[in-house]
Measured scan of single mutants.
Amino acid sequence: HERALMVNRLQKLTRMLRVHPDPKWKQEQQELIKRLK
């Protein structure tokens, strides 16, 4: 369940980064990718 939330968050971040590349979001995205591996 928590994994699904993280995947959701990651997808949302990816969409937001396409619109507005924010370093903070980029960092969070990298963190999520690490944790999901």
Rank of each mutant, 00 (worst) to 15 (best):
L5S: 13
H1K: 12
K26E: 09
K26N: 04
K26D: 03
E2N: 09
L5Y: 11
N8P: 01
R9P: 01
Q29W: 12
H1T: 13
M6K: 03
P21F: 15
R18T: 06
M6Y: 03
Q11C: 15
L17C: 02
Q27F: 10
I33H: 02
M16I: 06
N8H: 13
R9V: 03
K12L: 14
W25Y: 11
L36F: 03
K34H: 09
K24Q: 09
H20P: 01
R35M: 08
R9M: 06
R3W: 14
L36E: 01
Q27N: 08
Q11W: 13
R15Q: 13
K37V: 07
Q27H: 10
E2R: 08
Q30D: 06
L32W: 01
D22I: 05
P23H: 04
E31A: 09
K37W: 12
K26G: 03
K24I: 11
L5Q: 14
E28P: 01
E31L: 08
W25I: 13
Q30I: 12
I33K: 04
W25D: 04
P23A: 08
L32A: 00
L32K: 00
R9H: 03
L17P: 00
L36R: 02
N8V: 14
R15E: 13
K34M: 12
V19G: 11
D22E: 06
K12I: 13
T14L: 09
N8M: 15
V7A: 08
N8E: 15
P23M: 04
R18P: 00
K12Y: 15
V19K: 14
Q27W: 07
K24V: 12
L5F: 10
L32N: 02
Q11P: 01
Q27T: 08
W25A: 06
R15N: 07
H1C: 15
I33A: 04
Q30N: 07
Q29I: 15
K26S: 04
K24Y: 09
L36V: 01
L10P: 00
W25V: 12
R18K: 11
V19L: 13
V19W: 11
Q11G: 05
I33E: 03
L13V: 04
K24A: 10
K26H: 08
L36N: 01
H1N: 13
A4F: 09
W25K: 05
N8W: 12
Q29N: 02
K34I: 10
A4S: 08
M6I: 15
R18N: 05
R3H: 10
R35W: 12
H20T: 08
E31D: 11
Q11N: 11
H20N: 12
N8R: 15
V19I: 13
M16G: 01
K24G: 07
Q29C: 13
K37C: 15
N8S: 14
R35Y: 08
P21G: 07
K34T: 11
R15L: 10
E31W: 12
L36W: 02
T14E: 08
K26R: 11
L36C: 01
D22P: 00
Q27I: 10
L36Q: 00
L13P: 00
N8I: 15
A4P: 04
Q30R: 11
D22G: 04
V19R: 13
L5I: 12
R15P: 01
D22W: 08
E28I: 08
D22A: 03
V19D: 09
H20G: 03
A4I: 13
I33T: 03
P21Q: 11
I33N: 03
M16P: 01
T14N: 12
R3A: 04
R35T: 07
R15W: 08
R3I: 14
Q27P: 02
T14R: 11
A4Q: 14
M6A: 04
R3E: 05
R15Y: 06
N8F: 10
W25Q: 05
K26I: 12
R18M: 11
E2F: 10
E28Y: 05
E31P: 01
L5H: 14
V19Q: 12
V7E: 09
R9Q: 05
K26F: 12
R18Q: 10
L10Y: 03
N8D: 12
K24N: 07
R15F: 06
Q30T: 09
K37G: 10
L5V: 11
A4D: 11
K26W: 07
K34V: 08
P23F: 04
I33L: 11
R35S: 06
V7P: 03
Q27A: 14
K34F: 11
L17V: 03
V19H: 12
P21V: 06
R18D: 04
K34R: 14
A4E: 12
L32Y: 02
L32E: 00
N8T: 15
L10N: 00
R35I: 14
T14Q: 08
L10R: 01
M16T: 02
T14I: 11
L10K: 00
Q11R: 15
E28F: 04
K24R: 12
R3Q: 05
E28K: 01
W25M: 15
E2V: 10
P21H: 14
R3K: 09
H1I: 12
V19A: 10
L10G: 00
M6S: 03
R18E: 06
R15I: 09
L32H: 00
L5N: 10
E28W: 07
D22N: 14
L10D: 00
H20D: 10
A4T: 12
K26L: 13
L10V: 03
K12G: 02
K37L: 13
Q30L: 13
Q29V: 15
E31K: 06
K34A: 12
L13F: 02
K24H: 07
E31Q: 09
M16W: 10
Q27S: 08
Q11Y: 12
K12P: 00
E2Y: 11
E31N: 07
H1P: 11
R3G: 03
R9A: 03
K12V: 13
R18W: 04
K24D: 07
V7F: 13
V19S: 11
L32P: 00
T14V: 07
E31F: 07
L36G: 00
I33F: 05
R35L: 14
A4C: 15
I33V: 06
Q27K: 13
V7T: 04
R35G: 03
K24P: 00
E2P: 06
N8C: 01
P21K: 08
M6F: 02
L17E: 00
D22L: 10
L5R: 15
Q30A: 10
Q30H: 07
R9F: 06
V7G: 04
L36T: 01
P23R: 05
L5K: 14
T14D: 04
E28A: 04
W25N: 04
V7R: 13
L13Y: 01
R3T: 07
R18S: 07
R9E: 03
E31Y: 09
Q27G: 05
Q29E: 05
R3N: 07
Q11E: 09
N8K: 15
R35D: 02
P21T: 07
V7C: 15
A4G: 09
H20Q: 08
V7N: 04
L5C: 15
L5T: 10
L32M: 02
Q30C: 15
T14P: 00
A4M: 14
L10T: 00
P23S: 06
I33R: 07
E2W: 14
L17D: 01
M16H: 03
V7K: 09
H1R: 14
P21D: 12
Q27Y: 06
R35H: 06
Q29D: 01
P21I: 05
E31S: 08
R35N: 05
H20L: 08
N8Y: 12
M6T: 04
K24F: 07
H20Y: 13
H20F: 12
K24C: 13
R35F: 10
K34N: 09
D22H: 11
L10I: 07
E31V: 05
R9L: 07
